[in-house]
Design a protein around this nucleic acid. Structure first.
Length: 561
RNA sequence: UGGGGAAUAGUGUAACGGUAGCACGACUGAUUCUGGAUCAGUUAGCCAAGGUUCGAAUCCUUGUUCCCCAGCCA
């Protein structure tokens, strides 16, 4: 990956890794892993974990980070998700080399380990139903009680477990449990389930198995088998750590250290899988890569850069505090990156026709425009100018309020890289709607500067009517409304009804004619845009990645108050 | 009411017994052929109360608040 945006940083996890390196705890090895379950699409919360795990591996000589699919539940997992996860991790900029693994490849080994535990008298087959098991488990404040099958002889457990695997029993009829302590204050330690019977086809193993390991049993083993040193996971697994440790100790195998960190929450969006699924399946958004979603595929389609996401994740730090990061910080990182690298272009979102009365009919001029003022090497391009132009509707006001610097009757402004123009007439339709402006231009200001030193207070973007290309532009806003109702159950009432606005009559400069999908631009004075995969030469489609900071909008807001 | 965690400006994050700093946001101003960018500045904080210490965000005690756990999900 590109390391120049991941300068060395520190946090409590990296401190532990550094300390372990110093004491030689793992013989100088650093092995981490990113272990998604292939049951959905990755989002920026996952990216926090990805950057952490791959980042730590990259920062330490010889460090390794495995990409491991935690595919222990065939009823929820699909190959489609495996593909998308691989694509997203790559896109984010990380490389696992040879280290791509599947938990399901360890099923045989896990089974053998389970047999070992049975032989040690530390696991037993239990015939309790799910309902009964819940009863026996007790509650947060009351201890549980032992299953009547808890003291089954080893030989019987071995026999039953083998027959479970052989498919002799129906789903839900039996499980293999660890024999720990039904009165343990930590619920996870009350004889947790290690295997359940699931007659379901697995996306990689097919019908080879009908018993599947649970997370608690499988995860530590996966880490152990792969020689992981630091197993990093989110806060909700803190309560599982004693069990993670118990299993590995009971087996006497390599025992990685589990360390927990807080997952990422962002303002004005949703991050939980459950909610994302609800949005996608309920048709509130258009698929997993809807540009409004915080999924990596959504952010990619929206025009986010991996660099901006990594920079953001680096800035928010790593902690155990449950917190919600302001989306404004993500947007800041985005704009910072895009500002440096995006070619400038002129596009008019809501066109207003302007006729330059004193400009010769049929004449075309080509004006030189700077591609990126932040990057001299980006060079310049030619933009056509003619008698009939389009400017942004909101750049003209017939009765300009205080602090409105743009075009108004009798006022002179600059057309960027072109000429000074002065508004001489306003044409309206029967409904009183402004349909056209008449202006004059000053030929002496060609290129955008007045030889007499005359100043204007505004510079407008524009396109030549005849030369410009039609385009559709999709404007996005936050998924959630600003002031969110506190009712967590009714979270969908907080959805922002204006999160998507589609503009169809837009006009963009001709240089965009063959803009390939995914290419990013700054539409001057408007924001950052990228070409949507829906775009073609016949029909250009752009997504607004982010708007530019808009001081005038702020002033307007204040004036309204 | 059991157990496990966490509390530092509006938000996120540093400080590891020795001047509470950084970033985002908000607000000023300068500058500008993008009301962009840039530059300069302002704003605002140690959950509470005790204790230890020459000295406490940091150590101790008590309390408060918030998060997680009763799937054969991960």
């Amino acid at each position: 990956m590109n390391m120049n945006d991941s300068t060395r940083q520190s946090d409590f996890i990296r401190d532990i890794v550094a300390e372990d390196l110093k004491t030689g705890k793992w013989d100088g090895r650093v092995v981490t892993r990113f272990p998604p379950e292939p049951n959905g699409y990755l989002h920026i919360g996952h990216a926090k974990s990805i950057c952490l795990n791959f980042g730590i591996a990259a920062e330490n000589a010889g460090g390794i980070c495995n990409l491991r699919f935690d595919d222990t539940n065939p009823t929820k997992e699909e190959a489609e998700y495996v593909e998308s996860i691989i694509e997203d991790v790559r896109w984010l900029g990380f490389d696992w080399g040879e280290h791509l693994y599947y938990a399901s490849d360890y099923f045989e080994q896990m089974y053998d380990y389970a047999v070992q535990l049975i032989k040690k008298g530390k696991a037993y087959v239990c015939d309790l139903s799910a309902d009964q098991m819940r009863e026996y488990r007790g509650t947060l404040t009351a201890p549980g009680k032992n299953s009547l099958h808890r003291d089954r002889p080893v030989e019987e457990n071995l026999d039953l477990f083998e027959r479970m695997r052989a498919g002799e029993f129906p789903d839900g009829s039996r499980v293999l449990r660890a024999k720990i302590d039904m009165t343990h204050p930590n619920m996870n330690m009350r004889d947790p389930v290690m295997y359940r019977i699931l007659h379901a086809a697995h996306h990689r193993q097919g019908n080879k198995w009908c018993v599947y390991p649970t997370y608690d049993w499988a995860h530590g083993l996966e880490d152990s088998i792969e020689g992981v040193t630091h197993s990093l996971c989110s806060l909700e697994f803190e309560n599982h750590r004693p069990l993670y440790d118990w299993f590995l100790d009971a087996l006497g195998v390599h025992h990685p250290q589990q360390i927990e960190f807080a997952r990422l929450e962002l303002t004005r969006t949703v991050m939980s899988k459950r909610k994302l699924v609800e949005l996608v399946e309920g048709g509130y958004v258009n698929g997993w890569d809807d540009p409004r979603l915080p999924t990596l595929s959504g952010l990619r389609r929206r025009g986010y850069t991996p660099e901006a996401i990594r920079d953001f994740l680096k800035r928010i730090g790593m902690n155990k505090v449950v917190s919600t990061v302001d989306t404004a910080l993500l947007e800041h990182c985005l704009r910072k990156d895009l500002n440096k690298r995006s070619p400038r272009v002129m596009g008019v979102l809501r066109p207003l026709r302007v006729v330059i009365d004193n400009y010769p009919d049929g004449q075309t001029d080509e004006l030189e425009a700077i591609n990126n003022p932040e990057d001299a090497s980006a060079g310049t391009r030619k933009v056509p100018f003619s008698k009939v132009l389009y400017i942004e509707r909101e750049d003209f006001m017939e009765e300009p309020p205080r602090k409105f610097f743009r075009l108004a009757p009798g006022r002179e402004v600059r057309l960027r890289y072109a000429y000074f123009i002065t508004c001489t007439d306003v044409i309206k339709d029967d409904a009183g709607e402004i349909v056209e402006l008449h202006c004059t231009y000053d030929p002496a200001t060609r290129g955008g500067d007045s030889p007499d030193g005359r100043k204007v207070k505004a510079t407008l973007h524009w396109v030549s009517a005849e030369h410009s290309l039609p385009a559709e532009v999709r404007l996005y806003d936050h998924l959630l409304k600003d002031e969110a109702s506190a009712d967590a159950a009714d979270w969908k009432s907080n959805l922002n009804p204006d999160s998507l606005e589609i503009l169809t009559g837009c006009r963009v400069e001709p240089s965009l004619a063959a803009a390939p999908a995914g290419s990013r631009y700054q539409f001057e004075r408007q924001g950052y845009f990228c070409t949507d995969p829906d775009s073609s030469e016949d029909k250009l489609v752009f997504n607004r990645t982010a708007s530019l900071r808009d001081t005038w909008a702020k002033i307007q807001k204040q004036q309204k108050k």
